[in-house]
């Protein structure tokens, strides 16, 4: 079984202060810590689980800067076999359709059974790249997958719908699956794997290497323009309880008790 897993290096902004740069269309990411996108981490694990169950090989594919190789090596350490990193600043990265076309260009010509990727990037939240990629490759897809069962020439998946409901779907292979968080328990890379990962193949390619015309994936090709970024006004009517942690706890306890809430 041949699997490709597409991963993205993203900033963790869950507890960080986010500031928009003077250009108005980028954020100051100099103080963010970066790591593998959460859902992609589950996709890596799923690809390794599939390899362990069915044999074959897993190729990591990522578009990103040199510093993202730490993340790629970690995926290799967990059991992926080789990797391709696409680096080319001519790709219109704000448009998932352009990213999908670039990834498809890196995959075309290779045989594969499955392409896995996270269902959503935690930085820009489009949830579009994987499904667009399937169309570019001309293969089946299912999004928001939280269960995968490979059968003869087919795959049965569960898609996560709203309200806790799941949808069981069967697809002919090859197919693209966008993986939802929680599908498995991502492993920690074993020490031996980390050592081996350093020796695994990691090719760095540009659009030219891939034979992709930059005109087809660049700012001119994209049909959407990122006009501006801004910090939304936050309206909070909350009563902020101040003081040392202990005082805060006491005040809150008293509010809850007096209000008959507990």
């Amino acid at each position: 079984m041949k699997t490709l897993v597409c991963i993205k290096y993203v900033p963790d902004t869950s507890e960080a202060e986010v500031k928009v740069n003077p250009d108005g269309i980028t954020v100051d990411d100099s103080r963010f810590s970066f790591d593998i996108n959460d859902a992609d981490n589950y996709a890596v694990e799923e690809s390794v689980l599939l390899k362990e169950a069915h044999g074959g090989e897993v190729t990591v594919l990522s578009m990103g800067p040199k510093k993202s190789e730490v993340m790629i090596r970690m995926a290799l350490a967990k059991g992926c076999d080789k990797a391709v990193r696409v680096e080319d600043d001519r790709v219109a990265g704000h448009d998932p359709l352009m990213v999908a076309k670039t990834l498809a260009g890196a995959i075309k010509g290779q045989e594969f059974d499955l392409v896995l990727t996270g269902c959503m990037a935690s930085d820009d939240w489009h949830m579009s790249t994987g499904v667009a990629l399937a169309e570019e490759l001309g293969v089946n897809h299912a999004s928001m997958v939280n269960y995968v069962e490979v059968m003869d020439g087919k795959v049965k998946v569960h898609r996560e719908l709203e309200g806790g409901l799941l949808e069981a779907v069967e697809l002919e292979l090859p197919a693209v699956l966008t993986i939802q968080t929680g599908i498995n328990e991502p492993r920690y890379a074993p020490i031996r794997g980390i050592r081996q990962a350093q020796k695994k193949e990691l090719n760095v390619v540009s659009l030219d290497d891939l034979g992709i015309d930059p005109e087809t994936v660049g700012m001119d090709a994209s049909q959407v323009v990122l006009e501006k970024l801004y910090i939304p006004e936050v309206e909070s009517t909350a009563e902020f309880i101040e003081g040392e942690p202990e005082e805060k706890a006491e005040k809150l306890a008293s509010i809850l008790q007096k209000g008959g809430l507990v």
Binding site: V18, H94, S122, D123, V224, L226, Y230
Partner: peptide, 18 residues
């Protein structure tokens, strides 16, 4: 123009369609 939310809901983006 479409407004979207990004970066843990801390930034809004305005995307203009060509």
């Amino acid at each position: 123009k479409a407004t979207r939310s990004m970066y843990s809901g801390k930034v809004n983006a305005v995307m203009a369609f060509k």
